[in-house]
């Protein structure tokens, strides 16, 4: 038996902190040992939030390294994957009237980025509790500097901590997509407020109360501006 695991010893299933569905196994949706960092800019959409109906996942490409800080500056690597894209299924593309290579915006409760749509059958919709849930897949190698630039997937993520290694949940979140280019400047704030209202409920995490009843929280998880 592995010793020292904070959420062991046996594997089980909990939903991610943001999920389109509730947990079918337990009354508790998410891993009770998980740390979440609650503050106004780091809000989580509740399970099944109709504003964010799609599953968002991030992944890496062989051509880039980590967030691209090195590979975006090397021409031989950068030219092989030169622009931020979002992979979606043909079904989702048809639903939103998106063509391959069109610009789309990916929106979560934390932010919005622009990406080119890469429509592929490799991305398959999920069948969850008899419901079809579409997926949006983003590489996370782009940023504002280098030979190639693009939206940073990190802008969309929540800040949370897996119990053992304190890495944020970047592989399963919920999002929405909006066809078209992302507005810049003051129009961006308006856009973001429209699709992800920046004035949210005081409960920043769906399971905040039941989970940490009577506790002040641990570690640096609760040093957020709005946490009291």
């Amino acid at each position: 038996m592995p010793k020292g695991l904070k959420d062991g010893p046996f594997p089980t299933h909990y939903e991610p902190l943001e999920s389109p569905v509730s947990n079918e196994l337990y009354s508790h949706d998410t891993n009770p040992a998980e740390q979440w960092f609650a503050r106004q800019e780091n809000r989580f959409a509740p399970p099944g939030d109709p504003r964010f109906p799609y599953v968002l996942t991030t992944y890496r490409l062989t051509e880039h390294h980590t967030a691209g800080g090195m590979s975006r500056f090397l021409s031989h690597l950068a030219k092989l994957q030169p622009e931020m894209f979002a992979e979606i299924s043909p079904e989702l593309a048809t639903q939103h009237k998106i063509n391959n290579a069109d610009y789309i915006c990916v929106v979560t409760l934390r932010g919005a980025i622009e990406a080119r749509a890469l429509v592929s059958r490799r991305i398959r919709p999920l069948a969850l509790n008899g419901k079809t849930v579409h997926q949006v897949a983003l590489p996370y190698h782009y940023g504002t500097a280098g030979l190639v630039r693009g939206g940073a997937a990190n802008d969309l993520l929540t800040i949370s901590g897996e119990p053992n290694v304190t890495i944020m949940e970047a592989k399963a979140l919920t999002c929405n997509i909006v066809p078209g280019r992302l507005p810049r400047g003051p129009a961006f704030a308006e856009f973001l407020n429209k699709y992800a209202p920046q004035t949210g409920p005081t409960i920043l995490h769906p399971e905040e109360r039941s989970f940490r009843k009577g506790q002040s929280g641990g570690g640096h998880a609760h040093e957020g501006k709005t946490w009291m």
């Binding site: 490409l61 051509e63 021409s75 030219k79 092989l80 391959n100 890469l118 030979l147 190639v148």
Partner: peptide, 29 residues
């Protein structure tokens, strides 16, 4: 993985010829 493309360009000092995203699967060459 395109390691062959990169190794070829590295060894032969082939210049980069632009950064264009083609939207054709993962092929941007």
């Amino acid at each position: 993985c395109k390691a062959c493309e990169v190794a070829c360009k590295e060894w032969n000092e082939v210049p980069d010829d632009g950064f264009t995203w083609l939207g054709n699967s993962y092929d941007n060459t």
